[in-house]
């Protein structure tokens, strides 16, 4: 464990807290992509299958359960719970996620760390996480302006994998034979997708005023 990875996990937890607060207190999922939340649920349920046999640390096992539970709860609330379910707009949030899941599944089959079913599913979840934010970014693009809490949610989510990139650099230089090309590649793509958002987020928050984040 190092500070970058710890801060990354804290940023990830913060993103869950912000989103759960927004949809439970604000009683609205407006501006939130259910498609992205469904992809995250698939990512965590597939990646953390090793919960049952890989106890690398209590910290890891605990957070795996937290991430599966939170992502499932968020999908449940937005899909089935009133009044949030009525605030979800399927016309707006209509990114064809099958075009994300399909290629990631093929990539997981072809490029993985071992030819066991779990390694293929694990690689699939790594690739899928890299692109899971796309429906959310497309939704924000359509709406032009980003609600304040939503902008903090996306910023925390982007920061989490960005901090993981620093963690991988740190581990590469401090540990011998540390090699994780799959997550390095996917994590770079994932963080890259946020660069445009981060630029507008920074511009809107720079003046200290909480001007709304505007996406062109």
């Amino acid at each position: 464990m190092n500070i970058f990875r710890f801060l990354g996990d804290m940023s990830h937890i913060l993103s869950f807290v912000i989103l759960l607060l927004k949809i439970t207190q604000g009683k609205s999922a407006a501006g939130i992509s259910l498609r992205t939340q469904e992809l995250y649920m698939i990512v965590f349920c597939s990646r953390y299958l090793d919960l049952f046999w890989n106890f690398s640390s209590l910290y890891n096992s605990f957070l795996k359960v937290v991430f599966i539970a939170c992502s499932s709860a968020i999908v449940y609330i937005i899909r089935f719970k009133s009044p949030q379910k009525d605030t979800w707009n399927p016309e707006l949030d209509n990114f064809p996620i099958q075009y994300l899941i399909g290629p990631c599944a093929v990539a997981g089959l072809l490029i993985n760390q071992d030819w066991t079913p779990f390694e293929m599913i694990w690689a699939f979840s790594i690739y899928l996480e890299a692109v899971a934010i796309l429906p959310q970014l497309f939704l924000l693009q359509k709406q032009g302006e980003v609600e304040n809490l939503t902008s903090h949610y996306v910023a925390a989510l982007g920061a989490y994998r960005g901090l993981y990139l620093m963690n991988w650099v740190y581990r590469y230089f401090t540990e011998d034979d540390y090699l994780q090309r799959i997550v390095w590649f996917a994590g770079t793509v994932q963080t890259g997708l946020y660069i445009d958002f981060f630029y507008h987020y920074y511009q809107s928050k720079r003046g200290g005023l909480s001007r709304p984040v505007k996406l062109p």
């Binding site: 990875r5 996990d9 640390s57 890891n60 957070l63 760390q113 071992d114 963690n167 090699l179 994780q180």
Partner: peptide, 10 residues
């Protein structure tokens, strides 16, 4: 083949 690296990250 060589064992895949341990999965010690989330």
């Amino acid at each position: 083949g060589n064992k895949p690296p341990a999965k010690d990250e989330l």
